[in-house]
């Protein structure tokens, strides 16, 4: 597989030291690190939403120098939290995902269904709970159908079932060639991903397969925790 997403010397002054990354297409990539380690900064810089330095390319095309509209078709981004002042309906907000595709409204109903939002489709988004709002933003990114999906802590606000469903969804996306790059805190989830990127104090600390990154030494040095394997509760979708 060719390196699809390539970050070279990407940095944001004061928040992220220059780093290089190469991620193959069709992978589920987790971004981990303690609070303030630069996860959100890296995701928004890679998506071209934050000023900084370095190059980001996707399948050989420079992402950051594309016109905004074209970049909108190539990279979708889900923020950590959303404040909705105005009462657009859930369906309307999901439909915003098609803006860069000429507003053709394609795939909206399917995305709502997949994120368990069909029943809320006509509700104003500013009346939803935090987790529901987050699912609306994921639906919007799904509707966009960009090959690159940058999600900032998509699981943080979700209950366990919806969290698992979102992970399942991300897995399905990777099967159609999408690369899903998302930040998370749950290291048990990180263990099930294709690739893990670990940040520490604004620096790339480690990357590779979960087994290679989530080692006892790395966890102790970066998070200050001790790893103990043994019985643990495992939850899965029926």
């Amino acid at each position: 597989m060719s390196a699809a997403l390539q970050l070279s010397q990407v940095s944001v002054p004061g928040r992220l030291e220059p780093l290089d990354l190469e991620l193959p297409a069709g992978q589920l990539v987790g971004l981990i690190g303690p609070n303030g380690s630069g996860k959100s900064t890296l995701l928004s810089r890679a998506a071209g939403l934050l000023p900084g330095r370095g190059e980001v390319s996707w399948a050989g095309r420079p992402l950051l120098s594309l016109a905004v509209m074209e970049r909108g078709r190539m990279a979708a981004w889900v923020p950590q939290e959303a404040h909705f002042e105005f009462g657009f309906t859930v369906r309307a907000v999901a439909g915003h995902g098609r803006y860069a595709h000429g507003d053709d409204g394609r795939g909206v109903e399917a995305a709502l269904e997949r994120l368990d939002l069909s029943e809320l489709a006509d509700r104003p988004v500013n009346q939803l709970s935090g987790g529901e709002r987050h699912r609306v933003m994921l639906a919007r990114a799904l509707v966009n159908d960009a090959p690159l999906q940058f999600w900032d802590e998509p699981l943080a606000a979700l209950d366990v079932r919806h969290g698992l469903e979102v992970l399942h969804l991300a897995r399905v996306l990777t099967r159609t060639g999408h690369t899903v790059f998302f930040s998370l805190h749950d290291l048990r989830v990180a263990h099930c991903l294709d690739h893990v990127v670990m940040l520490h104090e604004g620096r790339l600390y480690a990357q590779g397969s979960p087994a290679a990154v989530l080692t006892e030494t790395n966890l102790r040095n970066v998070f200050g925790v001790r790893l103990r394997t043994g019985d643990s509760m495992i939850l899965e979708l029926p």
Partner: peptide, 21 residues
């Protein structure tokens, strides 16, 4: 109007969706 819809839900979000904010 359409791009104002997107902007009114957040500038960064609008930018990510293809609006030249």
């Amino acid at each position: 109007g359409r791009s104002m819809d997107l902007l009114s839900l957040g500038a960064t979000e609008a930018q990510s969706l293809g609006v030249d904010v």
